[in-house]
Amino acid sequence: MQLFDPSGARKYLTVSERTAFLKVAERAPRDVRTLAMTLAWSGCRLSEALALTADRVDLAGGVLVFESLKKRQGGIYRAVPVPPALLEALDLVHGVREAQARRDRGRSLRLWPVARMTGWRMVHRVMTEAGLSGPAASPKGLRHAFGVAAV
C-alpha cells in the first residue's frame, strides 16, 4: 500500500481527521451517516460498500461480509469485524433484521442503492464539512487510514 502520492502528499487520513469525519457524519442524513461509518470502520472500498446487501450483515457475528471487487473474479468474500454501534445503525436505518427475515434473507436489499459517483459525492460532502481536503479527503483516504491504524 502506497501511503503517499507521487507529489509526496499523504493518501490517508490521520486519527484526528478520521475522528472529525465521523463527528460530521453523525449530523448527516441517516444513509450518508451509515455509509461514512461503514467506510471508516471496515476499510472497504466504496464500490464494495455500495454493493453490500442486508444478507451480508452478520449481526450475531459482528461482521460485514464484503465481496472483493479487486480480485477480477466473483465469489471471493472477506468478513470484517466492525463495532456494534455500526451494526445497530445499519439495522435501524436500513431494516437489516426485517430484510433478513424475508424469504430471500435480504439478498435483494442493497443498503445504498446509489451509483458509485453519488456515493463518492456523499462521502466527499462530509469530508468538506469536516474541513478536510487534498488526496486523503476521499473514500480511498478512509481505506488507507484503516490500513495505517491496523498496522
Rank of each mutant, 00 (worst) to 15 (best):
M1L: 12
Q2P: 14
A9T: 12
R10K: 13
Y12E: 11
L13D: 09
L13V: 10
L13P: 03
V15T: 14
V15R: 15
E17T: 07
E17N: 05
E17L: 02
E17D: 05
R18I: 03
R18F: 05
R18H: 08
T19V: 08
A20G: 11
F21E: 03
K23F: 09
V24L: 12
V24C: 05
E26P: 08
A28P: 02
A28H: 06
R30P: 09
D31R: 11
R33G: 10
L35V: 09
L35Y: 08
A36F: 05
T38S: 13
L39V: 11
L39C: 06
A40H: 00
A40I: 04
A40Q: 01
W41R: 09
W41Y: 15
S42I: 08
R45V: 13
R45Y: 10
L46K: 00
S47T: 03
S47L: 03
E48F: 04
E48N: 05
E48L: 04
E48R: 03
E48H: 03
L50Q: 05
D55H: 13
D55S: 14
R56M: 06
R56T: 06
D58W: 03
L59Y: 03
G61V: 08
G61R: 10
G62N: 12
V63E: 10
V63S: 13
L64Y: 02
L64F: 02
V65N: 02
F66T: 02
F66E: 03
E67P: 07
S68G: 13
L69E: 13
R72P: 06
R72I: 04
R72N: 13
Q73C: 11
G74C: 09
G74W: 12
I76N: 06
Y77C: 04
Y77W: 12
V80N: 01
V80Q: 08
P83N: 10
P83D: 11
P83A: 11
P83L: 11
L86W: 05
E88L: 14
L90W: 00
L90G: 00
D91I: 12
L92C: 09
V93R: 00
H94I: 02
G95S: 12
G95A: 09
V96N: 00
V96D: 06
R97A: 15
R97F: 07
A101W: 07
R103G: 01
D104A: 04
R105P: 05
R105Q: 14
R107C: 10
S108I: 06
R110N: 08
R110G: 08
L111F: 04
L111E: 00
L111N: 04
L111H: 05
P113C: 09
V114D: 05
A115R: 15
A115W: 11
R116I: 15
M117E: 14
M117D: 14
T118N: 07
R121C: 09
R121P: 01
R121E: 11
M122S: 09
V123P: 01
H124V: 09
E129M: 15
A130Q: 06
A130K: 02
G131K: 03
G131P: 01
S133T: 13
S133E: 15
P135C: 07
S138K: 13
S138A: 11
L142Y: 01
L142P: 01
H144V: 15
H144R: 14
G147K: 08
G147C: 14
V148K: 09
A149K: 05
A150C: 13
A150P: 03
V151A: 15
